[in-house]
């Protein structure tokens, strides 16, 4: 059963301190900025964030980091030209980092969503990122045992959704969204528009509604939510 929300705070209600949160997006493409702003306003802290990057500029994931709500980041590529928020927190020792090869990040979440206990993967063999991990030779090639990454919550961005929870994405903003949607106990998607049930071509649905618990309809959400909530988030983090 999927619920549709116009209030971002209502959409993220119940995210607990210490939760593991899968955050979609590749850079800013597909990043659920409104849901992240609501998460900041909700006050949840001590979070583990799983995302490809570790924030760009001052918005979205970078704002969540800046608010001091994140204990650990699991990602493939934290260091970017505009990742100064992450860089500062990492260098001061205020943030734990686990670097995961990008394909392993995706596949480990895919495994979580598909009920796979673990899998043998050739990526990273002989590198520091495979140190201490179990290996096995299969058909003459060495593989590393990789375990699933499961989220308590997934926050993703999509183009459109319906009341069944079905989602479609737009261009490369799709990226991690469909994988993360499968891998969390509660999946929350922000969509640019909600369409009537039956309006999405069933052949073109990318994420079937069974994977989606809540949809935030950005077209119905107040445009100034992020601005209105930011003083609250500063108070909570202070």
């Amino acid at each position: 059963m999927t619920t549709i929300h116009s209030d971002p705070l209502e959409a993220v209600a119940g995210i607990a301190d210490g939760a593991t949160v899968l955050v979609g997006g590749f850079g800013m493409a597909g990043m659920p900025v409104t849901l992240i702003d609501a998460l900041i306003a909700s006050g949840a802290s001590d979070l583990t964030v799983v995302s490809n990057n570790a924030g760009n500029g001052d918005t979205g994931l970078a704002a969540l980091l800046a608010a001091g709500r994140v204990r650990k980041v699991v990602c493939s590529f934290p260091r970017q030209a505009d990742s100064y928020v992450f860089d500062g927190l990492y260098r001061s020792g205020d943030l734990e980092l686990e670097v995961v090869p990008q394909g392993n990040l995706a596949e480990r979440m895919r495994a979580a969503g598909a009920g796979i206990g673990a899998f043998f993967c050739p990526t990273g063999v002989g590198t520091p990122l495979a140190e201490g991990k179990e290996t096995r030779e299969i058909d003459g090639r060495t593989y590393v045992l990789e375990y699933p990454i499961k989220g308590d919550v997934a926050l993703i961005g999509a183009e459109a959704g319906d009341a069944m929870g079905n989602l479609v994405y737009r261009k490369t903003a799709r990226n991690f969204g469909p994988v993360m949607a499968t891998a969390a106990t509660t999946t929350i998607a922000e969509v640019r528009r909600v369409v009537a049930v039956g309006d999405l071509d069933p052949e073109a649905v990318v994420t079937p509604g069974i994977f989606v618990d809540r949809i935030l309809d950005l077209s119905a959400a107040p445009a100034d939510v992020a601005d209105a909530e930011s003083p609250t988030s500063q108070e909570v983090s202070a």
Binding site: S76, F77, P78, L97, Q102, G103, G124
Partner: peptide, 10 residues
């Protein structure tokens, strides 16, 4: 240095 691997290993 801040390690960042991206998709290079894959």
């Amino acid at each position: 240095a801040i390690p960042a691997v991206g998709g290079a290993m894959d």
